[in-house]
Computed example of a mutant assay.
Amino acid sequence: MTILAFGRTGQVATELSYLPNVMCFGRDDADLTDPVACAKLVETHRPRAVINAAAYTNVDRAEVEEDIAHLVNAEAPKAIAQACADIDIPFVHISTDYVFDGSGHDPWPPDARPFPLNTYGRTKLSGENAISEVGGRYVILRTSWVFSPNGENFVKSMLRLGATRDELRIVADQVGGPTPARDIALACHTIAKELMVSPGKAGVYHLSGTPDCSRADFAREIFTIAQMPCDVEAILTCEFPTPADRPKNSRLDCGSLEQRFGISRPNWHSYLQAQLTEC
């Protein structure tokens, strides 16, 4: 069984590269700004399944590079989904909590109506809609606050900043579930294999780490485990303006993923402790 994965150096893609029978293609092999070439790659290799772990993820830069973000996050996934549907193989696509506006306090179920606040979220939602329209054996897996030892993420930013400062101001009104990239990769791998024999499980699902917490509390836990003497001052989102708006409520309801695929929410604290201990 061979699974083709788009992405090689990103957080989830790196974790996918460690799994058996997964071929990871980076930008040199599969440039998502060329959707036609990506589709041809699927047609040429004819794998048993495809996982898309590549995306345009610079949330703030997307505000001024919308065309590129749309090409990578919407047009390329559409072309890949069509290629997978044409040869009847599973397609697992990673999406984001940023498709929601972050209102309220309840976890977002997969069938909640999306309403993104920023360009990144809109392009990811466009990709979701395109995949759904193509149909076939697909799963869209939304996740949140991804972290790992690889790539750029909140944990690595806190470690870098905390090493040189006595105090950091971190937003406390953005709440979500930090999610280890390793668990996202394992989930995608499991889903792809399951779709080979159970195409009726196609659809949209959520996966995020547990327990939900604020950005400020996540930062405090990072500094505690890393034994860094850096204090955290809790602030509001409005006190830390960014080019792109962020959702305040990124809680995700992951119940259907566990019910249909047996995949539970990972405990981010355990993974974070292991990651920082290794460092």
Rank of each mutant, 00 (worst) to 15 (best):
I170P: 01
N129M: 11
T179F: 03
T123M: 07
H189W: 14
R182I: 13
P109L: 04
P90Q: 06
V139E: 02
T190D: 12
A181I: 08
I191P: 07
M158P: 02
N129S: 11
D111W: 00
D183G: 03
V134L: 12
V134F: 09
S132N: 05
V139S: 02
V139I: 13
F147N: 04
P180V: 11
S157W: 14
R165Q: 11
P110S: 09
P178H: 10
S95H: 00
C188V: 15
G136W: 10
E133R: 14
W145Y: 15
L141M: 11
W145Q: 08
K193Y: 09
I131Y: 09
V155E: 08
D173A: 11
G176F: 12
P109V: 00
D166V: 10
P180A: 06
V146W: 07
N118T: 08
K156C: 05
V155W: 02
G102Y: 02
G162R: 01
V175P: 00
P114D: 05
Y120V: 10
R113M: 02
I94N: 04
A172P: 01
S126G: 03
A181M: 08
D106V: 00
T164M: 15
L141N: 09
A192V: 14
H93D: 07
S103M: 02
V92N: 09
A181V: 11
V171S: 13
D106Q: 07
P149E: 11
E167G: 03
D111S: 04
F91K: 10
I131H: 01
G151T: 05
S148K: 01
V155Q: 06
L117H: 04
F154W: 14
G162K: 06
A172M: 10
D183H: 15
A187F: 07
G177Y: 10
S95M: 02
Y98N: 03
L168M: 15
V171I: 13
S95Y: 00
L186Y: 04
T143S: 15
H189A: 07
E167M: 14
L117Y: 09
C188Y: 09
H105G: 11
D97Y: 00
N129V: 03
K156I: 05
H105A: 15
G121I: 07
G135Y: 05
S103E: 12
N129H: 11
I170A: 09
A185D: 11
I140Q: 12
V171P: 03
L141W: 13
T123E: 09
G121L: 13
P107T: 11
G136A: 15
H105N: 15
A181Q: 10
N153Y: 06
V134E: 04
P178T: 06
D101C: 01
H105T: 15
F147E: 13
Y120D: 12
Y138N: 05
L168V: 11
P149K: 09
K193R: 12
S144W: 02
S126E: 11
M196P: 01
T119K: 13
T179L: 05
I191R: 08
A130I: 13
N129Y: 02
E128S: 04
Y98I: 01
E133D: 14
P149F: 02
